[in-house]
Amino acid sequence: MEKNATAKESALLQALSDPGHVYKPLFFRIYNDDDKQLFLKLQETVKDLVIYDQILSQLREYVKICYLTKLKPGDDLQPFVNELLGNRRQEEYGVWVYYPWSKRLVHLLDEEEFVALRTSRNTYKITPEERELLRSKKIGVIGLSVGQSIAITLAMERVCGALHLADFDTIELSNMNRLNVGVQDIGLNKAVLAARRIAELDPFLEVLCFEEGITAQNLDAFFLENGKIDILVEECDGIDVKISSRLKARELGVPVVMDTNDRGMLDIERFDLEPDRAIFHGSIDEGMNTEKLKGLTNEEKIIILGKIFDLSKISDRMKRSLGEMNKTINAWPQLASSVVLGGAMVTDTCRRILLSEIHSSGRYYIDFNDLIN
């Protein structure tokens, strides 16, 4: 969120001139004169601007949670709405949020009321005190194919207040068997797309994208920019990044969570509690030169991944798939059902780690073939 009118005006000009890589919405509180002028400028400048104003519906819903003990069935809500409005006109209440990539301008409750209402049906599965604690947490996600479902579920449940997203890759048609994207998104960076989805769900979540993926040059920034991340979720394809990110996580005392979307396998590595713990549960040589691991062939990857994941424990269908690599298929097979399950498992695990309900490292399986047959 911009801190002053000059910064906000610059952000608006950038969004108007080059929206292609923009993933952060713009906020206008039009009871403020500077914001009101920019708000009017936006409406004058943007052709085909689409305006959504459902603030009264939000206020009525907010009244129901705010005045719960005062309301009786059938009560007129408008007096309570008027109390919330005070001396402010309805159009000036809350905040207007502009999404440059879709040219949508949306009238919303401002942050505190928005968060309280949007998460109200989490209570008491997540208590109000826990909600406030989670708002202070930051999670980093590397790899926004499998990681897209995870990032969006983390945001939906509001398990954190900020996210770092890293992926250099762009949306392709073949990704659409498992990613929640549209054909109009082909060619868009995966991290940017996930950030946009999150902004449309909750514009007050802070998101920072690393569109170049994880590199030696930005690894520190991914972990530390604007404060250290509290959990790393690693879902990338590159073995070099899998290793280098874990070594950095261990150095900084950051726990790592990973879903493999086969047999519901979930990995937890508590480097925050076990600073000397071997990465990948000690299954590989940590001294490997990560630079030499870049650009491996699928056959070379399988050798190392076999040590990391224990190929004897993967599903029969995945074993068959690996045997067909570069023969009848050219990429790792992944199913939407497994990816969505991973989003649920990782979100639940991250929440419980952040709330100090999980203290152990380990490898776990939620295999539907074992559970339901």
Rank of each mutant, 00 (worst) to 15 (best):
Q43G: 05
I308Y: 06
N122E: 07
G161S: 01
L85N: 07
I366E: 09
N289R: 09
S337F: 14
L247N: 07
L105I: 10
Q334E: 14
F114W: 15
G143K: 00
A194R: 00
L355H: 02
R363Q: 12
E113H: 13
T123D: 14
Y67E: 13
K294D: 12
L77W: 02
L355W: 00
D220Y: 04
E274A: 07
Y52D: 13
S10K: 15
N122M: 04
M288F: 05
P128N: 08
K8R: 09
E300P: 08
H21P: 12
M325P: 10
I229K: 01
G86M: 04
N177P: 01
K8D: 05
G238S: 13
K294L: 14
K3L: 14
L247K: 13
I243V: 03
S321P: 05
N289V: 14
E91G: 05
R118V: 04
V146K: 06
D110F: 12
D310I: 05
S174A: 12
L109R: 00
D167T: 05
L163D: 02
G213H: 01
S102T: 11
N226P: 04
L117K: 03
A191C: 03
E44L: 13
G282M: 07
I358R: 05
T45L: 06
E299D: 15
V46M: 11
V81M: 06
L13D: 13
L38W: 01
S57C: 11
D237G: 05
A216M: 11
D110M: 08
L224A: 12
Q54F: 13
E91P: 06
S312A: 14
G287H: 06
G295F: 04
K64W: 04
K3Q: 14
D276A: 10
N87C: 11
A221L: 12
S136A: 07
L201Y: 10
I353L: 08
V233A: 11
A194C: 08
L201D: 05
T347Y: 02
M156D: 14
S321H: 12
I303V: 14
N122Q: 08
K36M: 13
G227I: 00
R197K: 14
S136L: 10
L266C: 09
Q334Y: 07
L273K: 09
V146D: 04
L252D: 04
I65H: 01
I150G: 06
F271Y: 09
H107Y: 08
Q184S: 12
K294I: 13
V241W: 02
G264P: 00
N226L: 11
S149F: 02
E157P: 05
G147N: 10
S338P: 11
P203N: 05
S149W: 00
T347P: 08
S338C: 14
N289Q: 12
L296C: 02
S356P: 01
I243Y: 00
A11Q: 11
F210A: 09
I65N: 00
L144S: 06
M265N: 11
V63M: 03
T123A: 12
I366D: 10
D34C: 07
L144P: 09
L105M: 12
D202P: 00
G147W: 03
R197C: 10
G140T: 00
S283F: 13
Q334A: 13
L49A: 10
E83K: 14
P100L: 02
D48R: 09
F80R: 01
N82L: 09
R60M: 11
D33E: 14
D276H: 12
K242P: 09
T123R: 12
